[in-house]
């Protein structure tokens, strides 16, 4: 009898495993719709560029790209579903918190090179879809590299101070007095596209100077000079039509027929060229409405 129950147990265990296997996966497998929507959010939010060391031949989203800034060099982390080196063990709530509050699992304050001052504006729905998509990406076991920051910018314990000064947490409600296209454009520019993270100059503490929003910066990432994208006629892009801006975001052509490379070329390739024409137009409409700054 004892013998028989042992055999029964041995027979049943694999059955139980087989039964629990697919159902456990099913619980983790997000609906195809969420993944598809998440891919669009992923493109609009431009995640690929910073989280991939393209020049070094790194795996997509495995991190390791060095971002030289006036505060030191950030090395972007692995955001593949790898459980050890990536974000595979992050719960949905932890994922949302990272974007909303700039806080990783275990209460680690994240550096704002991860542009949560913008991503905090994302809706819960978009964040959940984005996570669903990221979890379908191939995992990479590439270990993260620590940042090389100049003091005091590398002192994580100072980050709550930075957040108190510069992080205005939470999504941006639509302005009912404005057309839907404008509201969509604002969401794409301010939240997903995080355009201001490069195009708005930063003060000495690395916060965005809100009085000079989108006025450009001489100290962009990798030392690039970042242009003014406000509607100011001379310093900015006041002379560009909505169509000029939309086609620039699609194929990278400026109104004088030049084609951009470098940082913006990458943004166009990875992000804005993959948006719908309606979304590119919405971005253009919103940009034409922001205050002109010289």
């Amino acid at each position: 009898m004892g013998h028989r129950s042992l055999i029964l147990a041995i027979t049943l265990v694999p059955v139980a495993l087989a039964a629990s296997g697919p159902s456990a996966v099913a619980a983790e497998t997000p609906p195809a719709d969420a993944v598809r929507r998440g891919e669009y959010v992923f493109n609009a939010a431009g995640c690929l560029g910073c989280h991939t060391d393209e020049k070094g031949g790194g795996a997509p989203l495995a991190g390791g790209r060095g971002l030289a800034t006036p505060f030191g060099t950030f090395h972007t982390p692995n955001i593949t579903p790898d459980p050890t080196h990536g974000i595979g063990r992050w719960t949905e709530a932890q994922f949302v918190k990272a974007f909303r509050e700039g806080e990783g699992p275990g209460g680690t304050h994240l550096f704002p090179a991860f542009p949560y001052a913008s991503y905090t504006r994302m809706t819960d729905a978009d964040l959940k879809d984005l996570r669903a998509y990221l979890m379908t990406r191939p995992a990479s076991a590439q270990a993260n590299r620590p940042h090389d920051l100049d003091p005091p910018f590398g002192w994580r314990f100072l980050l709550p101070v930075w957040k108190a000064l510069y992080l205005d947490e939470g999504p941006l409600p639509d302005d009912p007095s404005k057309p839907a296209e404008w509201n969509r454009g604002r969401y794409l520019v301010e939240a997903l596209g995080h355009c201001g993270e490069c195009h708005t100059p930063r003060d000495w503490m690395g916060g965005m100077d809100q009085d000079r929003r989108f006025a450009g910066s001489s100290e962009g990432p990798e030392g690039d000079k970042i242009p003014n994208i406000t509607p100011e006629p001379k310093a900015g892009i006041g002379g560009w039509s909505v169509g000029d801006i939309a086609s620039f975001l699609e194929i990278g052509m400026t109104p004088d027929g030049d084609f951009v490379g470098s940082g913006m070329g990458e943004v166009i390739r990875n992000s804005t060229s993959k948006l719908t024409p309606e979304d590119r137009r919405a971005i253009a409409v919103y940009l034409k409405s922001v205050p002109a700054v010289k």
Partner: peptide
């Protein structure tokens, strides 16, 4: 445009 941009990206320094 793709041909222009690809080359500018790699071989032209930013303004």
């Amino acid at each position: 445009g793709k041909a222009c941009g690809t080359c500018h990206d790699q071989f032209r320094a930013p303004k």
